[in-house]
């Protein structure tokens, strides 16, 4: 037992070091891709150097920028929204806007607040329904509508991103598309769990029908 405790405590600094190394790499590709070519596998693609490879996936891009003044000048020009004529890519520096603004808040996704809001909303409507203030059909309708909104929003933004990536379209809206895809997916996931809770009888019946439908057939 003692040995286990000691080995666990010994692993803490290693884990801490690993997590720190993770944080130091946070400025690079969040998906761990190396030299991701245009148009990139995700909506975070950014190319200020104009070499057709995502800057975030380039390990040496930051060191190159800091050593060459000429390089910095050209980067500034490209960041202003000029087109790189060599490979025809529009390079817009909007990938990691720390301010975010209306269309998205960078990489800050409101997972916990949104989840808590939805769960408390469900508990509230469930309480109203149990007390007889809200009809069962209305309670179901509210959460079905929210689920539909979540699915439509999540799949809509997702399909748009796939379309943009497959066709190589770069727009200033790409980072905000990711933001809204994540937010609406949270809505979709929580509403789906609520949907399963509302239709729990059918959910249980599904397993009975699928995995023992022979037994139910013989009863008849």
């Amino acid at each position: 037992m003692k040995k286990r405790v000691i080995s666990f405590l010994a692993s803490v600094p290693i884990l801490a070091a690993l997590s720190l190394s993770g944080n130091s790499c946070a400025a690079s590709c969040p998906y761990g891709m190396v030299n991701d070519p245009y148009p990139g596998q995700c909506g975070h693609y950014i190319d200020t150097t104009g070499d057709g490879i995502c800057d975030l996936s380039q390990i040496t891009s930051s060191t190159v920028d800091s050593t060459s003044n000429d390089q910095i000048d050209t980067n500034n020009e490209v960041a202003d929204g000029n087109q790189d004529l060599n490979n025809g890519n529009t390079t817009i520096d909007s990938g990691n806007d720390p301010d975010g603004g209306f269309l998205g808040d960078g990489d800050n996704y409101f997972i916990i607040p949104l989840s808590l809001l939805l769960i408390s909303g469900y508990l509230f409507t469930y309480y109203l329904f149990k007390k007889g203030i809200l009809k069962r059909s209305k309670h179901k309708r509210i959460w079905n509508l929210l689920l539909t909104a979540g699915y439509l929003g999540s799949s809509g933004t997702g399909m748009l991103m796939i379309l943009f990536i497959n066709l190589g379209i770069r727009t200033a809206l790409n980072p905000s598309l990711i933001f809204w895809h994540v937010e609406l997916s949270i809505l979709m996931v929580i509403s789906t769990l609520i949907h399963i809770h509302i239709h729990r009888k059918s959910f249980k019946n599904m397993f009975r029908v699928l995995f023992s439908f022979k037994a139910t057939g013989t009863k008849k």
């Binding site: 993770g22 946070a26 590709c29 969040p30 998906y31 761990g32 990489d107």
Partner: peptide
């Protein structure tokens, strides 16, 4: 979770 924690693993992509 990986994005929020800044974790880069070989299985991310």
């Amino acid at each position: 979770i990986f994005l929020e924690l800044g974790m880069i693993t070989p299985i991310n992509h």
